[in-house]
Structures are given as C-alpha cells and as structure tokens.
Write a protein that binds this DNA or RNA. Structure first.
Lengths: 218, 218
DNA sequence: TTCCTCTTTGCGGATTCTTTAAGATTGCGG
DNA sequence: CCGCAATCTTAAAGAATCCGCAAAGAGGAA
C-alpha cells in the first residue's frame, strides 16, 4: 500500500519541484493550492501525511496548520519554511524543514511519521518488513527472511540513506570485529538483494559503497 | 459451530475488502448496506456479532449503534472508524477500530467478544477448547487433552496470531528456563498438532517460527 | 499390576550460516 | 587508455543448528 501525501502548495508552486521525486520514491501525491482546498480534500478522502509548503505563502501557514489539526488531530504535518522569513517554531507541524534541502532529507523526515499497518512492521519507502513474521515485501515481491537477514535489513531500514560501515554491521549483527577475511556479510547482502531488489544484479535500493560498506537508498 | 457476523456496510463498500478474509478465517458473514436493513435482518435471524463499518458512512454510525443496542442489548458491536474523521469514543460499540488495520488485528479484537457456550470454553477461530473437560474440537475433529497439553494450547489461544517464544513457554508451563537441551516442548507441540490439525504433518494453525518459537494462526 | 501422563533419547531431515572459489567490477597509477 | 591490484558478487558446498517425532523410560494413581 502506497502512502498518500497531500501537498499544499501556494501560488508560486516552486515546491512542486519535489513532487515528481516523491512519486518516484513510491508515494502517492495529491496537490492542492490553498488551505481551503486542503480541508475540502480531507473531508472527502483520506491521506497519510500533509506537506505544507509555507515557503510559497505570504502568511505563515500557521493558520492552515491549525485548521487541519482542528479536524484531523493526528494527521502528521510537515511544514516547509523559508529561512529568510523566520517562522516561530511552534507552528503546530510535526516537522519543520527549512529550504534548501534534498529529496533524500525530505523522505527521511517523512518516513517515521507514516502510519504502520502494525507495530511490528518497519517501513521505508516501498519496503515493508514484518519483524514478527520475518517477511519482507517490496513492490510486488514478497519473501521470507531468515533471522540474520531480518536483523540485517532492519538495521538498514532504521538508517535509510546512511552509509553503514562493514565494521559497524559486524559489530551489530555478529558481535565480532571486522577483519576482512570472510565474505559472510557480502553473501548476506546478496541474499537481501534477492529479496527486495527488482533486479538483484543491478541494485537500486541496497547500494555498495566500495571500501566502506553499504547504503539503503529510499 | 461457526460464529456469524453481520457486516453493516455503507455505499462505498470499501470495507468488504475484509469479508473474504473473514470467511477464510471460518466466520459466517452476512452483509447489509444500511442500518435499517441490519435491524430487519436481526429481527428475523440471529448473529453473534455486528461489525459496523462507520468509515463508509457520512454520519457517525452512533445512531445505528444505538438502534441495535435498543433491541439487542448484549449483541457485541465492532465499529470501524476513519481516523481522519474523529468519532467520540462513546459511540456505544464494544470495540472501536481505526483504519487501517490488518485482518489479523480484526480477528484478534473479534474473538474475545464472541459468545461462549460456557465460561470454560475458549474459542479461537474454528478451535474450541473446553478447559473443564479438557476436550478440544477443531472442525470435525474432537480430542481429549492431558493437563499439560491443555495449558499449552490455552496459552496459544489466549494469544492468537502472536509468536510465543520457547523461553516464555518454558517459563509459563514448566517454570524453568529454556536451555535447549531437551525436546520436551517439541514433543508436546507435536501432540497438540495431532489434536487440532487436519494434517499434522503440514501444520496450518500451530506454526513453527524457527529459532524463536511457535504461533497459533487463526 | 495396569493405565495414564510426562520426560528423555536419538536420529533423520530441514533450515540457516559460513566458507570457498571463480569471475566481475572498480579505482588507480602510469 | 591500459593493466593491475583491490574489492565485491554469488553459486555451490560444507558446517552448524534447529526441529519433528517415534520409541522408550520414569513416575504416580487406582
């Protein structure tokens, strides 16, 4: 199930620069251009998260935030602010992001706010990891994971878009120091790729950082 | 005896997504599309539980709840709500479930509400465990259980769809720590399977979670 | 004793983990 | 751009671990 984002954009629409990227990252994005339209949308359809591009508004966006919170108290809100136009920190959003930022940073801030289908399901982009059942689903693919593979993938999903070094992975999963005389980690990485990558030979999510370790790109 | 559920669905019918799953889980499900139809159905036929998919209604569903309670005071009601459309907690339902949720969660909330034929009969899906007589029935099969097997199965039925770890089972049933140097638990599990599984060699209910423990899937 | 229940034993089989080794890829110096 | 060395990938095989269950032993009650 894709997560659905409602993007509230002002007149200038410069924030829509991010929307295609978000869609590429496997989110559904709806765009409205006023706070009023947002409220109208929410009264008819549901979404998982709101992004309010306050940088494209004259006003602070605080009012819109409050209106949303008045009716959908638990709906997570990410607010994008312009650093040249300082905003009081207590605008009511869960996350306040100042321009400029990368799409990667945006995704990293969104992910922890999304609702999970269960307490034991980790989610990062299109990857869903059921820790209890040790089942991972990514796009159309669903696979069973062994205990080691589960904890390996779990660490990556808890640190998306960060390079995890071989020595750290060895410490966290094998409780040993990395000496470089074994290929165990590589083999396990290969198996995780079999489980999550559309094309395991050309990894798109679990990326090799030669000489250092690996990174999960969401 | 299968438990019978009356599912009250609005126009949009998105909740019927769950109905096939419920039937797979060994419930009988009747569907009506209005509160009035529900009352009409209840005046002619009986059921064990009502699920009111309030998320598919404009109105809060509170009215329908009250109408049912007015005539069938003890009939358990599960209400499905849309978290974006907050409902006062006191709607009159026994359980209020917010979308989204898994079929597993739904079943877990339904089970404790179902009427038992006696106080000492546990029920989980098609499995009925008479604690007093120590008799278990599952589908067509009925078996006598020893005291140990009874308490083992009881624990699973009190925690359906949860992984129970070997160490917890040892603590709860044997009051010892699990050391892994005995096959006692496996043997008891095997006997429970003989009692409840249609095909004990290919368990369908009592599932092994290798390296961890077991889980009763309902 | 006989019956019932629970535990232990032993081993086959399945799963998971690690190592090996051949080949591919990457980065770098020249 | 070329060639080499370092690094990575992955199939395959071997090792280690875990589980299932038949059978036998142990203990208790009637």
């Amino acid at each position: 199930m894709k997560a659905k984002i409602l993007w509230i954009e002002g007149k200038r629409a410069e924030g829509q620069y991010f929307v295609p990227d978000l869609r590429k990252k496997d989110f559904t994005v709806e765009i409205v251009s006023t706070g009023k339209a947002a409220l109208g949308y929410l009264s008819k359809d549901k979404c998982d998260l709101v992004i309010l591009n306050a940088a494209s508004y004259r006003t602070s966006g605080k009012r819109i935030c409050q209106d949303i919170r008045g009716n959908w108290a638990k709906l997570p809100i990410v607010m994008i602010a312009n650093p040249n136009k300082p905003v009081s920190k207590d605008v009511g959003a869960d996350v306040l992001l100042e321009l400029p930022f990368t799409i990667r940073k945006l995704v990293n801030r969104i992910n922890p706010l999304l609702p999970y289908s269960s307490n034991d399901v980790l989610r990062a982009g299109p990857i869903h990891l059921d820790l209890e059942r040790r089942v991972v689903r990514c796009l159309e693919k669903e696979s069973h994971l062994t205990p080691r593979l589960t904890s390996l993938l779990k660490i990556f999903m808890e640190h998306p878009n960060e390079v995890l070094e071989r020595k750290d992975l060895f410490r966290r999963i094998w409780n040993t120091e990395y000496t470089g005389d074994t290929r165990t980690l590589d083999v396990h990485i290969s198996w995780v790729r079999q489980a999550i990558e559309p094309n395991p030979r050309k990894p798109r999510y679990l990326i090799t950082i030669r000489g250092i370790g690996y990174r999960l790109d969401i």
